[in-house]
Design a protein around this nucleic acid. Structure first.
Lengths: 107, 107
DNA sequence: TCGATATGCAACTATATGGTTGCAAATATA
DNA sequence: TATATTTGCAACCATATAGTTGCATATCGA
């Protein structure tokens, strides 16, 4: 389907998913789905879908115990983004505005 | 509409847009739209749409000169992502797997 | 002035996405 | 065992997204 970095970026590009992810990161413990969905306005099924997307990106891991499914955040895949950003960091302040360069050259 | 970080993340979540952005970053000079679209398989209008999305995120700035529109990359908005990531970096290696913690507690 | 080039706008299509509801199945508990 | 709880699956809906084509307009250069 799509590459790893795209999957990760799409997962966190949605504000609701970022909220879910954040809630899981700051939680001291793994949380079952219903308990997560209680913290949000949208339906449990909506939450489940978001969790699936986060799981596909490796940002959430889910472990079944009895009838419950405990979810916890895994922040490691975010390193991929950091990695992607690293290349462009070089340009953050040092790069001379290339348009101006261009226009100056041409007059 | 949506907040800044969401706009930026959505902009770079698309692989084609990341390619366009990359091409502009590594270009030594600002590039007119047609010249950019020559580097890609999709139509010029497709490229224009992507450029609009990147522009909305502040990742591309466009300057008209005559009949041409020169595009150049601005990497600075990426700092927002770096900022967002910073919080979670704390958890990258130090965090104890919270599910295991939880399960161990319960037996 | 006339033709070629660069672009924007609008309409359209197909598919992805974020969300919903209803229902069935599995597990826990009284 | 009967009931309540947690969940997954499937169908469905509305909107967003990625892409297309056609056409009009503005500018450049001969």
């Amino acid at each position: 389907m799509q590459d790893k970095i795209t999957t990760i970026l799409k997962a966190i590009a949605d504000p609701t998913r970022r909220e879910i992810f954040h809630a899981l990161v700051v939680a001291a413990t793994a949380l079952p789905i219903t308990q997560i969905s209680n913290q949000f306005e949208i339906s449990r099924q909506g939450i489940t879908k978001h969790l699936k997307t986060l799981e596909d990106a490796g940002l959430v891991e889910i472990n079944t115990k009895g009838r419950e499914r405990f979810c916890y955040a895994n922040t490691k895949p975010l390193a991929e983004i950091n990695n992607w950003l690293a290349f462009y960091e070089k340009f953050w302040d040092t790069k001379i505005n290339s348009l101006e360069q261009h226009l100056n050259k041409k007059g």
